[in-house]
Design a protein around this nucleic acid. Structure first.
Lengths: 335, 335
DNA sequence: ACTATTTCTGGAAACGATTCCTATATGTTA
DNA sequence: TAACATATAGGAATCGTTTCCAGAAATAGT
């Protein structure tokens, strides 16, 4: 097997020098003679030696590893973020450990513990809830900086990438109102996270501007993920009080909502107005009629990487705001 | 800051015993007295001590880490695999390092080097090419077992998860032929990987069975990814010799193909028959007319995790075959 | 009561690097 | 040529564990 790992000792032996000298050459110290550098480099080349990350990490105290924790990498938005974050981190010499929390608080907590034991240099995370009692103490006791994705937690020494969902949703809602809708259902995930609250604000803004009172019955908040949205949408149309328009916040909500509408034989853009907050790949080609609120998740990933690298470099926490844009298409116009 | 990491020394000091005794208690050795166990456990609980992975890894020689390398986590098939593989590995106490190769051979090679330096316990990879000259030596010299996704390389000590694309594509092609098509274009990625060759075989099988000679001009192989498929499809319909049906192998090919058709104002299922090999999330709802060849990528991820764990446990390499099924929908029937 | 055996425990050597400190060899100056 | 400054190399400590080895304490056997 490849059991024969070549270590710094082998190099030292081959070159006939001390291991400290080998290390000095490799780490680029100044006080080495030309001859020494030459001998060591020859031995290194001949043996194909590469320093061991593990030993370096133990000695130097950093692991060049970033933990990336999200609900579900299957969500295209998250996978795009992961993609661009990984790319950015890689360029800076960091690797990324990927963990799915599946939206489970307990799992999330354990994952932080795992990150700590692995001496991760930093964490990028989309937390399940902002109110989780363990969150602050765990994160502050992590011993590594944190970047939050679309979450706002006060009293936490963390940077954040924050999307301006509010303005996008506001524009979308305004457009629906302009098109004659008043019974506009809003369906989204957990209300104990910034992203949901911020979206609702946009919805409220539009109603306030139009001086229409909001009927709370049309607001459905609960869980992220397809299943909640699916059953909620089914319920929505099984009663008497039915909306004429539906805004779905997030990929999961849109997926579940559309699936339910599909089963109810209601065509978005025809039988009901529909706006999806967040797009998925091929959105334009596959579903050209569906209006959306778009945000650049690639940019979010990049920003999260930049922020975590800054924190690791010792800068103080900051926020990066990502804009959203409303993209009206045929589905906002149904009556 | 959280600089104050609590080590085994602290525990030993608090309990008033030797560090070796602490270790013995924690690793569950037999020869420790009740009193000793009790004292150590009390100290551990009081200090909230957790052993350091890094030091354990260095000492024990394994890192409980699996490298997961694919072209692009953005591809929903890969993200589903990553998801289920991570879940499975996690249960077994392993973490997953995610790396995108972006389909670049050089990057892939460097990533293997990185895996080696990080002393990864195993690698799950979707290789860019099976013929890459470095592949065999690099992988064999990795010092860790490897599971390949949809690749067949002889003389390699690796397990593999292999999909039976052949039968799915064969069924799809047969159906197209049955519907009167003869000029069936086939568009897919690099031909130096199993997945592409295997798909082509299914295509050929169907033609052979129907005793129709294949016109090689309708076979377009080149690169994975959207761009290649897009320009290839554009070309396909700019010349004189146009197909009446199009089979796209892989998400990238389907994406690019559909995008091009969209621009050409050709509606799949109406102006051209279309089959997508591989589906994406929401496929049924968003594009209910498009026929597909389906495979369970969640199962692929799970299988890859199982295989790598078996290899790590010392079993010899094996293969797992994943079936594919043709799902005919309206788009196969266009003339 | 004294030796033989069994239980435990502490000390020290790994694992593979980095880095501080000291000693040597060289070079400079009077 | 002696005395001193400087460049360079080697030795050892360290990071936080595990595990081997030997020795002390406790038990058993005669």
């Amino acid at each position: 097997m490849g059991k024969n790992r070549v270590t710094i000792h082998d190099v030292a032996a081959k070159a006939g020098v001390a291991i400290s000298s080998v290390s000095r050459v490799l780490t680029g110290h100044l006080d080495v003679s030309e001859k020494m550098r030459w001998r060591v480099e020859a031995a290194v080349a001949e043996l194909g030696y590469e320093p061991d990350y593990l030993a370096q990490s133990l000695r130097q105290g950093d692991t060049k590893t970033i933990g990336f924790m999200i609900r579900d990498i299957t969500n295209p938005l998250f996978s795009i973020m992961a993609q661009s974050a990984e790319h950015e981190l890689r360029k800076a010499g960091f690797s990324m450990i990927l963990i799915n929390s599946h939206g489970d608080l307990e799992a999330e907590k354990e994952n932080f513990a795992l990150f700590k034991r692995r001496r991760i240099d930093g964490v990028i995370a989309s937390l399940v809830s902002e109110d989780a009692p363990y969150a602050k103490s765990t994160i502050n006791g992590l011993g590594a900086p944190v970047v939050l994705l679309d979450r706002k937690i006060t009293g936490l020494n963390a940077s954040a990438v924050i999307c301006d969902h509010r303005s996008g949703v506001k524009e979308a809602t305004k457009d629906l109102i302009k098109n004659g809708h008043k019974k506009i259902a809003f369906l989204s995930g957990r209300k104990d996270v910034y992203i949901t609250r911020n979206r609702i604000k946009g919805y409220e803004d539009a109603f306030a501007e139009a001086k229409i009172k909001i009927d709370e019955d049309f607001i459905h908040l609960g869980k992220f993920g397809e299943n909640f949205a699916y059953t909620e949408t089914q319920k929505m149309f099984s009663g008497m009080k039915r909306p004429t328009a539906l805004i779905c916040g997030g990929i999961g909500a849109s997926t579940g909502g559309l699936r339910a509408l599909n089963e109810l034989k209601m065509k978005p853009g025809k039988d009901i107005a529909f706006v999806a907050v967040d797009e998925w790949p091929m959105f334009d080609v596959l579903s050209s009629v569906i209006s959306s609120v778009y945000r650049d998740s690639e940019e979010m990933g990049r920003a999260s990487a930049t922020l975590i690298l800054q924190l690791i470099a010792g800068k103080s926490p900051s926020q990066e705001i990502i804009p959203t844009t409303y993209r009206p298409r045929a589905s906002s116009r149904a009556i």
